[in-house]
Write a protein that binds this DNA or RNA. Structure first.
Lengths: 246, 246
DNA sequence: GAGTGGTCTAGACCACAGA
DNA sequence: CTGTGGTCTAGACCACTCT
């Protein structure tokens, strides 16, 4: 179907391809097209928006650059999904001495509870003052040794029933996407050095006061709302946080 | 002039635009076009390589995406330069509590000496076993307080006379580019937590053994060779290393 | 006004996947 | 074989910069 978009769109100032990019993005963010779905072909989209195929292509190129869609020659264009691969290479930055990433082994869940959010949690998640959150605490292992202690805070509203789940899977973002329709899109991490307190030292097998790497992460969903506030404390005796600057 | 590129190029398998991108990249890496230089116009390049303007455009788009060239409508396409802005936003990741970057103030140079490279330095810089290096040590300040202690190791061969310079400027990459024709293109950082030794604690005003953030950086020039091996030790009491995952 | 990059079009051909 | 995305072309018009 043709909504007569072009006539409307050309009245604006942004380039056509950017406007179409916005429309496509919106459909993904609204869940009209879910992760893994096949998008209409370029020619179909060109017909719908009444523009040339080249313009649709440029709009799609932008979405590819942002990891929002994936293209496969001969098959089509698909909404990107959180595969373990993507989660590992995109969101997991601890590497060993050979600079190779490894998938963390099954994590040990310490607790998963629903409670009223603390002030800094609510602030970071941009929630109202009485909102509840689900707090997941777990220890992640690499090569059999406990290396990361995590506290993950998410709004309970977006994850109904999560706190009753006593078997939170390892691949959290894949799980969020599949079970709750929440797609993590980007994140900001802040990294600092601190000392292990008693509990941390216990879980990570360190002396109390040993230096550990602290990482806070605020992750956004597709619509730009913060949906995860995470604190990771890492033993960096045998691993480092690797960051490529390109 | 027309070198008859197209006939040669089409025998290969890589797409035309990628091959042209490679040729342009080579001219930049070889210094034929230096930072700040104006490239020939799209039409001129299209003529030279005997392809359409659209193909040249796609090649240039790739270089733009890699921060190798900058385009200005109405003016032309220029080889990218290391402005203080770029150096700050691209290569400097320490932010304060408000998550804002700030330009480090004039750094205090501790030493700048020429000596035989140690084994791990030579390994990280991919140098032969008898190569010499220049080692710069300095303390950088933020808001008047010493926050970062740096040791920067570069091959002496690429930086003749650097060790006699007793006034190394703050903007190192801009200085490298302007004075030695060495353009830093990308880098890999590895981050870990450690304890301040006596010297570090002294320079950073910390107690001995206090947790500090360690950052090693290996930076590459345009031709892909490692040209800088840097260790930064940071006091993260009032700052964090910010990393955006997009 | 002349020259630059930025947008948009229409059409051709190729490479790949799947029925 | 058809349909998909990937490459490449030729040309039009616009927005911007400088003279």
């Amino acid at each position: 179907m043709n909504f007569g978009f072009k006539a409307i769109l050309t009245t604006g100032q942004a380039p056509l391809y950017a406007q179409i990019r916005g429309h496509l993005l919106q459909r993904i963010a609204l869940g009209l097209w879910k992760p893994g779905d096949l998008l209409p072909s370029e020619t179909a989209l060109a017909d719908e928006f009444a523009v040339s195929q080249g313009t649709v292509r440029k709009a799609l190129d932008g979405l590819v650059a942002n990891n929002l869609v994936v293209r496969h020659q001969g098959k089509g264009t698909f909404v990107a999904t959180h595969t373990p691969q993507r989660e590992l290479f995109h969101f997991f930055h601890l590497v060993d001495q050979n600079f190779t990433r490894q998938m963390p082994e099954t994590s040990r869940l310490i607790s998963c509870q629903l409670r009223r959010g603390e002030r800094h949690e609510l602030h970071n998640l941009k929630l109202g003052s009485n909102a509840h959150v689900v707090v997941i605490r777990r220890v992640r292992r690499l090569y059999g040794k406990p290396v990361i202690m995590e506290r993950i805070v998410v709004p309970s509203k977006l994850f109904p029933g999560l706190s009753e789940n006593d078997n939170v899977p390892n691949e959290l973002y894949h799980f969020f996407e599949k079970t709750y329709g929440v797609t993590i899109h980007k994140a900001i991490e802040n990294i600092y050095a601190t000392s292990a307190n008693q509990e941390t030292s216990l879980y990570l097998g360190l002396k109390q006061g040993a230096p550990v790497l602290g990482i806070t992460r605020i992750a956004e969903s597709l619509d730009g709302a913060p949906v995860e506030y995470r604190l990771s404390l890492c033993n960096t005796c045998a691993h480092t946080y690797m960051n490529e600057i390109v």
